[in-house]
């Protein structure tokens, strides 16, 4: 029951070296495309600048997560030890001067909350997890995780054109340029 109509996802250009894909990415950026990406087996140093991408804002979320962890730990300890059920053990006080004994757990929960914030925020920002993506329809694309480098310009880009984009990518020195489609 597959739909005979297909939606064009974009053009996928294959490169075989870091140098080629790096300089191609600079040219794609200068051509003014916005919905495009470089798919590589490992992060390439300087690619963010080549693509004109700003710094990730992930650290701000992680800071908030860490602050939340610190607050959680402090409230958990202070409220339970001092407010709800003042516990005097080993002749140690149950008042504001107990706080130094709370530092280890405050530290640990700061780290714990920060780490989970980093993981989940990172996944959200990477738009993962997802079970399917049109790029997986390409046979060639499977080698992005081995030794090939790809640039994909998506059809939703306002500058995308069925003929011009293809010849543009070929002109960048791509080994092959492929039209990637997805089922509707």
């Amino acid at each position: 029951m597959s739909n005979p109509l297909k939606r064009v996802h974009g053009y996928l250009a294959e490169f075989s070296s870091v140098k080629e894909v790096f300089h191609a990415a600079e040219k794609v950026r200068h051509a003014g495309f916005s919905s495009w990406d470089v798919h590589t087996p490992f992060p390439i140093h300087g690619m963010d600048d080549a693509m004109g991408l700003p710094r990730s804002i992930l650290p701000r979320f992680v800071f908030v997560g860490g602050a939340l962890g610190l607050t959680t730990a402090f409230l958990l300890e202070f409220l339970t030890q001092v407010v709800i059920y003042p516990t005097v053990v080993q002749a140690k006080p149950a008042n504001i001067f107990t706080i130094p004994a709370f530092f280890p757990v405050m530290f640990e929960l700061t780290i714990l909350f920060s780490a989970f914030t980093a993981l989940f925020t990172c996944l959200v920002m990477m738009k993962l997890p997802r079970l399917h993506h049109p790029l997986f329809n390409s046979q060639r694309f499977g080698r992005f995780s081995d030794d090939k480098f790809f640039i994909c310009i998506e059809a939703r880009d306002p500058k995308f054109s069925t003929e011009k984009t293809k010849s543009f990518l070929s002109g960048l020195g791509a080994d092959s340029v492929e039209l990637v489609e997805d089922e509707l």
Binding site: P43, I44, M47, C122, M126, L128, L131, H132
Partner: peptide, 18 residues
Amino acid sequence: GWRGGNRQWRHYEVAYML
């Protein structure tokens, strides 16, 4: 569903460093 896009790597690398 990892696709190794640089728009993923740039967050990934920061998360890893953090």
